[in-house]
């Protein structure tokens, strides 16, 4: 067991295994990177309130010390951000289950494979190559996600959601005020649900997708690169558009109240043989592409 109180910028290395990570910070910046090797904790900036780093039975937690006396309103308004500010970076094993909480500031997570759960009140979330189950929830601020696969749930009240080049089989993205851009190299039976009240939705799926599609907008218009989507009676700018792509085993639903919806086709690599090298080991992603392209 390790229990450290950190009150100045420093680097720690933990040799014991870490299976779970919990970080609770008030204001600042938080980087979490999945990497093999020992777990590292780096505090690059810290305000007066010290941080507590605790490691017990594979569970690592980083948080501020408890506030001893519950302070008054003026204290909250003036001091919270200034006293409890920290910039923390962590490298943890990729298979660790990670829970991150930050009231104000950016959170960056990359290379994690199990479950990643991020909650930010006001700030932004950047996700790179996350696998497994990922959830990011904000009140105000955008989420930007690149690469990765598994299940992706993104929620914000006011902010934009962008998912790019993701191979997620399940994407749920909801925002009240903000646009959604979702570019997925979707596997066969994927489920994509996108919803916004005010803001457009742009979604791009593989041109050879098997999806049952349901697009709805109250006052925007719908554009689709898939002609098979338009039934005889509906026209391209109708308020709702339904159809089946391929075998229709997966599901795509997008709904917007006042934004437009564009459904685009993602070109599929036209040379499936290219991802079939005989002399090299095959990693997960090209193997999946090959299977889909065949």
């Amino acid at each position: 067991m390790t229990h450290r109180i950190i009150d100045s910028p420093q680097k720690l290395t933990l040799d014991q295994p870490v299976e779970r990570l919990d970080v609770h910070l008030v204001a600042g910046r938080l980087n979490v990177i999945g990497a093999d090797g020992p777990t590292r904790v780096e505090v690059t900036r810290i305000s007066r309130a010290p941080l507590v780093v605790e490691h017990r039975d594979g569970h690592l937690s980083v948080r501020h010390q408890r506030i001893r006396r519950w302070p008054g309103l003026w204290w909250w308004l003036g001091q919270l951000g200034r006293r409890f500010r920290a910039e923390v970076s962590l490298a943890v094993p990729p298979d660790a289950r990670v829970q991150l909480r930050l009231i104000s500031g950016p959170v960056i997570a990359s290379g994690l494979r199990a479950t990643t759960d991020v909650e930010v009140t006001s700030g932004q979330v950047t996700l790179l190559g996350l696998r497994g189950r990922t959830r990011a929830k904000l009140v105000s601020g955008p989420v930007e996600a690149l690469g990765g696969d598994g299940e992706l749930t993104l929620e914000t009240i006011s902010g934009e959601l962008i998912v790019a080049d993701s191979a997620a089989e399940r994407v749920h993205a909801t925002t009240v005020s903000g646009a959604i851009t979702c570019d997925v190299d979707n596997p066969r039976d994927s489920e994509i649900q996108l919803g916004t009240t005010s803001g457009g939705i742009t979604v791009r799926v593989r041109e050879d997708s098997d999806l049952t599609v349901d697009l709805k907008t109250t006052s925007g218009r719908i554009t689709s690169a898939f002609t098979q989507l338009d039934t005889a009676e509906s026209v391209s700018w109708s308020k709702s558009s339904r159809g089946v792509l391929g075998r229709g085993t997966g599901r795509l639903r997008a709904a917007s109240t006042s934004g437009s919806i564009a459904l685009l086709a993602r070109p599929v690599a036209d040379e499936p043989t290219d991802s079939e090298p005989t002399d090299e080991p095959v990693n997960a992603e090209p193997a999946r592409n090959r299977e889909a392209g065949a």
Partner: peptide, 13 residues
């Protein structure tokens, strides 16, 4: 990219 991100075939080609 430290193994965190493989640009897909649809991005590279």
């Amino acid at each position: 990219f430290l193994g965190h991100y493989t640009p897909s075939a649809g991005t590279i080609y």
